[in-house]
Nucleic acid binder design. Sequence first.
DNA 1: CATGAATGAGTCTTCATTCAT
DNA 2: CATGAATGAAGACTCATTCAT
Lengths: 162, 162, 162, 162
Amino acid sequence: MAALNTNLIAEKAGVSVGTLYQYFPNKETIAAELVRRLRAEMRADILQAVAATQGSNIHDTALAMVRASIKHHTRAPGLVRVLEAAEAELPLDEEARHAKAQVHKDLVAVLVAHDIDRPEIASVDLAAMAEGMVHAAIQRGEEDIDDITARVFRAVCGYLNI
Amino acid sequence: MAALNTNLIAEKAGVSVGTLYQYFPNKETIAAELVRRLRAEMRADILQAVAATQGSNIHDTALAMVRASIKHHTRAPGLVRVLEAAEAELPLDEEARHAKAQVHKDLVAVLVAHDIDRPEIASVDLAAMAEGMVHAAIQRGEEDIDDITARVFRAVCGYLNI
Amino acid sequence: MAALNTNLIAEKAGVSVGTLYQYFPNKETIAAELVRRLRAEMRADILQAVAATQGSNIHDTALAMVRASIKHHTRAPGLVRVLEAAEAELPLDEEARHAKAQVHKDLVAVLVAHDIDRPEIASVDLAAMAEGMVHAAIQRGEEDIDDITARVFRAVCGYLNI
Amino acid sequence: MAALNTNLIAEKAGVSVGTLYQYFPNKETIAAELVRRLRAEMRADILQAVAATQGSNIHDTALAMVRASIKHHTRAPGLVRVLEAAEAELPLDEEARHAKAQVHKDLVAVLVAHDIDRPEIASVDLAAMAEGMVHAAIQRGEEDIDDITARVFRAVCGYLNI
DNA sequence: CATGAATGAGTCTTCATTCAT
DNA sequence: CATGAATGAAGACTCATTCAT
């Protein structure tokens, strides 16, 4: 995949390939690290959204989280897309898996706090649903973030029966 | 891109690479053709679902379509995933673009028939949402199709406010 | 070499590749046959030139032969060029070698008849010289055959000290 | 074109294919560069011959140039032959075309200095004639350079009427 | 978070050759 | 001078990885 070319990654990172390989044993770990960072950023966004709506009803929290998710996709659409596609077939290392799991856990915690049924499943479903919709919208060139947000929010509420 | 290796594609297709190249000028067109077939099959599944629920309310039709979408993902999960990932960066030829557009049009037609708001947008949103959720579920190894169906259906209804 | 593509040769010959391979065991023999024909035609042209100047002085004979050589290059410039290039690295079969040798022998005979020194060497030198000049002129797009003839003739006379 | 096989070129150049492709975008430019070098070397040989016979009559200069031309063919007969054959169908880049043109210009300059008629045409004719004869002689395995030189020289003088 | 030219295994693509019809 | 789709070895090209500086 052209976008995950090691030389390109190095260039974008402002270093040489050699340097990259001094810190990572191979391309897979490099990609895993990028995934880790992506998830960490995402988590920060989400935690912030959760914190900001602390004590509110689930609607407000959900809305804030959807917004956070979209923000995350807007930052570097190309990279996010490529990495999320790569994530599936990549043998993630412990760190990356952990970062990914954290996002999941945070979401589960929110769902549990609001008495949602089968929170573990709901967490992955909601993430997949939002990711799918946002991803498609961004890729089509949509720019009205509020509109995208509203649409995803509708689906989320439907899924949660709230 | 191990899964879109021309030699592998040829092998799976039961022919030699040379034969493949007698019908397609290069790898891109080969991939485009696979996308075209995928979309054509998907469309057949969806049209059948629509036809089978002709005259029913939108709930039944939506449910049938969700089921069709899942069926499509179940057939050849690996290939579907790879192709859907490739679809975005592939220069699709006329045929493939047409096949993709047809699926979209069919869905829009159903939405229009049921007086759904902004049917064009709804069509892509619903497709993305379902694809995202189903994709994630299948990849995680879920096998209870009815359960997945019910969850996607909930999101769809929420999105459509029905 | 694109111009010696077996499928192309077959097409130009108005048959299928399969048919070609029913008469020749491989590409080399096909090329050899083309060389053989080329040399046979060339020989015919040269013999005719010699016959037409029977009894004349060497100047007239040389001039006629140069003309014949140019005619040969004009017929199918592309093929002639390709074949003459191929001739060197091709393992010619008996027939083709014989056809080539015949041309040489005829020339030697003429040279002997006119008391030229070292006729064997002169024969190949003259052929190479004429071929080189004519080839280059034709390829550059020159069309004034008489002019090319005059120039080659000058070189030939110089070589022969006549 | 076995002799212009990229892997072979790389091997002969003492590097790997990858390295070759780090400096040239494709096979054609690689071949063009080889042609350029060939012509540059040839030019050096010729200029040296011209310089060494500065002020002499045209006979001496012509002789020296014929000798230079033969030397050029002797260095790497195989490569020279292949490249000169390839030259015609190759899309030469600016550099290569320039190198080729330089040789031509140098020769024209010499011819002009000696009041030769139609120097532009004479230049290409002489080059083609010498190349044709030398080429054939070398390929037949002749090793007596002086003899070849004398024969080519005779043709050259005849052509130039000197 | 050093550098980047060199390496060569792995892909894409072509084309001489075969063989079922 | 039967046909031409199928084959796969060979050749063009890429890119993850290394190593001398």
